[in-house]
């Protein structure tokens, strides 16, 4: 089962669970949380600096994200699962940025400079491609259409298969999803060129 894909079949779709959660159905909220918890942890784990990657820090962020998402769920109108995933991701990344900013402001008792700490302990994604490239990716992704952002998030960040992407984005076939992902990647490359440093 690819990450982000529902484990209980399509009877209780994300849109239906969101509708119930908006009416105050705690069981629906719980199912939403359970459905996306592993995905949120995966995102958080990849993005958190090493010093904040302990289980409790990651879980605190994920829980805080879920609380925020459920708090504002009354204003969120998910037409399909991909939109809800993008909504969760956005909240999570904001939480991570806030956490890193808070850490930067916090005085350290051991005399170590927080700037050193942050720069010496990058996240796994920063380790793999560098913080500058990751920032450029985030900026470039933010300039794409919502649909293309979701296609990139599902394929690149969550590693979903085309069949699951087609279901998640309500597309006609896995091949349609594959073409959408490819076009989204071309648009992402164009957007990256706009952020400089590739030419």
């Amino acid at each position: 089962m690819p990450p982000g894909a529902p484990a209980e079949g399509r009877l209780d779709t994300t849109a239906e669970l969101i509708r119930l959660a908006r009416c105050g159905d705690l069981a629906a909220s719980e199912r939403l949380v359970r459905r996306y918890y592993a995905t949120l942890r995966q995102w958080a784990h990849g993005r958190l600096p090493r010093y904040a990657r302990g289980l409790s820090d990651t879980d605190d962020l994920v829980q805080s994200t879920v609380v925020q998402a459920l708090k504002h769920i009354g204003t969120f109108d998910a037409k399909y699962e991909g939109a809800f995933l993008a909504y969760l991701r956005k909240i999570l990344l904001n939480q991570i940025r806030d956490e890193v900013r808070r850490t930067n402001r916090r005085p350290r008792s051991d005399g170590e400079s927080v700037d050193d700490l942050v720069s010496d302990q990058p996240s796994p994604l920063e380790c793999a491609i560098g913080s500058e490239s990751l920032e450029r990716y985030d900026r470039a992704l933010g300039r794409l259409s919502e649909r293309h952002q979701q296609a990139v998030i599902l394929r690149v960040e969550l590693g979903m298969g085309y069949e699951a992407i087609a279901e998640t984005l309500r597309m006609s076939s896995p091949n349609a999803a594959r073409m959408c992902v490819a076009r989204a990647l071309v648009r992402l490359a164009e957007s990256l060129r706009g952020t400089g440093g590739t030419g």
Binding site: A128, S133, V156, V186, L188, A189, E190, L192, R193, T198
Partner: peptide
């Protein structure tokens, strides 16, 4: 364009 796609591949 190619460098940008290579970066996408790295991502």
């Amino acid at each position: 364009s190619i460098a940008a796609l290579e970066l996408v591949e790295s991502l």
